[in-house]
Simulated assay, not measured.
Amino acid sequence: MAQINRLEKDLGPSLIECAERGGSMRPTPFGAEVAAAVRATTPPATERTPPVSEGSSPSSVL
Results as ranks from 00 to 15, higher is better:
54 E>D: 14
18 C>M: 05
41 T>R: 15
41 T>K: 14
53 S>C: 04
29 P>I: 04
44 P>W: 01
43 P>G: 04
51 P>I: 03
36 A>L: 04
20 E>N: 05
35 A>T: 04
13 P>E: 02
53 S>F: 11
27 P>V: 00
52 V>L: 08
34 V>A: 06
40 A>P: 00
5 N>K: 12
5 N>A: 14
39 R>E: 08
3 Q>I: 05
7 L>R: 02
16 I>T: 12
11 L>K: 01
14 S>C: 00
62 L>F: 14
57 S>R: 15
2 A>I: 07
33 E>S: 15
28 T>N: 14
49 T>L: 12
27 P>E: 06
20 E>D: 10
10 D>Q: 13
9 K>Y: 09
12 G>D: 05
29 P>A: 10
26 R>C: 00
51 P>Y: 05
24 S>A: 11
51 P>V: 03
41 T>C: 11
38 V>I: 15
15 L>I: 14
18 C>V: 12
17 E>D: 08
25 M>A: 10
50 P>W: 05
56 S>Q: 12
36 A>T: 01
9 K>T: 14
50 P>C: 02
9 K>L: 12
5 N>H: 09
52 V>F: 03
33 E>P: 03
35 A>L: 15
55 G>P: 01
43 P>E: 11
33 E>M: 10
47 E>V: 02
2 A>E: 13
17 E>V: 09
29 P>E: 08
37 A>L: 12
56 S>T: 11
36 A>I: 00
36 A>P: 04
42 T>C: 10
54 E>S: 03
51 P>C: 01
56 S>R: 13
28 T>Y: 13
16 I>H: 01
8 E>M: 04
55 G>N: 07
16 I>K: 01
20 E>G: 09
44 P>L: 04
58 P>H: 11
38 V>L: 15
11 L>G: 10
18 C>L: 07
53 S>T: 12
49 T>K: 15
14 S>K: 13
28 T>W: 10
51 P>F: 02
42 T>D: 00
38 V>K: 05
61 V>E: 12
61 V>N: 00
43 P>Q: 00
15 L>D: 01
26 R>H: 15
50 P>M: 11
35 A>S: 10
60 S>W: 08
48 R>K: 07
19 A>K: 08
60 S>G: 10
50 P>E: 05
50 P>F: 07
47 E>L: 09
23 G>I: 01
51 P>R: 12
18 C>S: 08
4 I>G: 09
48 R>G: 05
24 S>Y: 07
10 D>A: 13
40 A>E: 05
1 M>P: 08
15 L>T: 07
48 R>S: 13
19 A>V: 00
48 R>N: 02
15 L>G: 00
1 M>W: 06
40 A>C: 08
10 D>W: 09
35 A>Y: 08
16 I>W: 00
40 A>V: 03
32 A>F: 02
31 G>T: 05
11 L>S: 14
48 R>Q: 14
